[in-house]
Write a protein that binds this DNA or RNA. Structure first.
Length: 303
DNA sequence: TTGATTTGACCCAG
DNA sequence: CTGGGTCAAATCAA
């Protein structure tokens, strides 16, 4: 498989694939470093687990990128097959969720698991159960003591395909039956969400029609404030050229799974195709710059 | 047929 | 020991 043989239209997929693999490389390097320090691994098993899940997600994302490539079907994988035994790496097997699931670390018995501790948790209250852009699958419901309403448990639909460990819990608030408490655990590492990307104004001054689009779609990612920018808010330009744009002061650094600080982006470029449909909005944009999760512009859409 | 939901069982953390 | 989070077989729905 030669990247250089890809048509120009696949250049964007090439960038996406490279970013996915780069993220995987960073995480793998980190894991390798951790393995050399068993005491750190032991005291940070959860993070270790997270990093593994993210690496699994990276592979899934990369495969998705390849498959979405226009000339994917023309790509020969003979060489790959030659390097493995005939029973390994069969594409049909990879497509089979049950097979992938069977290959994952075994839970010896049902219900045998390590309870989440130290995971990234985010709680929100909503009036209705709106689609948050991710594909969730309900896996449980429990009556909770001292609570009128049961708690429902959801996991990411792509848990087994892409190793995404995101879960959420939904529970109706007792005092306010029209409201739901939604608790999110862990970040999505899958590439199949429909979450729209954030549109971030490049400048605190709305006079410039320059827009940054960040592909960091995960609101849970720790963000770093940059001086000179006003805090995030939803606003509208006076001339209605940018309706309900999110003016954001956020910039994203890389995500370090050990310190849980942003060092490696959790949801890289793979989100780029989701939710952006300026063409139908009827609004003009003079200049649009795409940035990756590192805040680095990588192409200009229009000028 | 396949994917989603329901629900009782199972097990861990406190 | 108990409450809560997860698993997985059974069931449902498209």
């Amino acid at each position: 498989m030669e990247f250089s043989s890809w048509p120009e239209s696949s250049a964007i997929n090439r960038i996406k694939a490279i970013q996915e693999l780069t993220q995987g490389q960073i995480l793998t390097d980190w894991l390798q470093e951790m393995i050399g320090q068993p005491e750190k691994v032991e005291s940070n098993l959860e993070l270790f687990d997270d990093a593994l899940a993210q690496i699994i997600g990276v592979f899934g994302n990369t495969v998705s990128v390849f498959k979405s490539s226009s000339n994917f079907n023309n790509i020969s994988f003979n060489q790959t097959h030659d390097m493995t035994s005939p029973n390994d790496c069969d594409d049909n097997m990879l497509k089979d969720t049950k097979y992938v699931k069977a290959m994952m670390p075994l839970k010896v018995r049902r219900g045998c698991y390590k309870r989440s501790k130290n995971t990234m948790i985010h709680t929100t209250v909503t009036f209705n159960l709106v689609n948050d852009g991710y594909a969730w699958r309900k896996y449980g419901q429990k009556e909770i003591i001292n609570s009128e309403h049961p708690r429902q448990y959801y996991r990411c639909t792509h848990k087994y395909e892409q190793g995404c460990k995101a879960t959420k819990q939904v529970q109706m608030i007792d005092d306010e039956p029209s409201k739901y408490m939604i608790t999110y655990h862990r970040h999505h590492t899958c590439s199949n969400s429909q979450t729209p990307c954030h549109i971030i104004l490049d400048s605190p001054s709305p006079k410039e029609n320059s827009v940054l689009i960040s592909f960091d779609t995960n609101p849970l990612i720790k963000k770093k404030q940059v001086s000179g920018f006003s805090p995030s808010l939803t606003t509208q330009k006076p001339n209605n050229r940018f309706p309900s744009l999110i003016f954001s002061s956020d910039c994203y650094t890389t995500w370090d799974p050990f310190t849980q600080s942003s060092k490696v982006p959790l949801e890289p470029l793979s989100m780029m195709s989701y939710g952006l449909d300026m063409s139908t909005s009827g609004y003009e944009i003079d200049d649009m710059i795409l940035i990756d999760n590192f805040g680095v512009p990588f192409s200009k859409l229009c000028s």
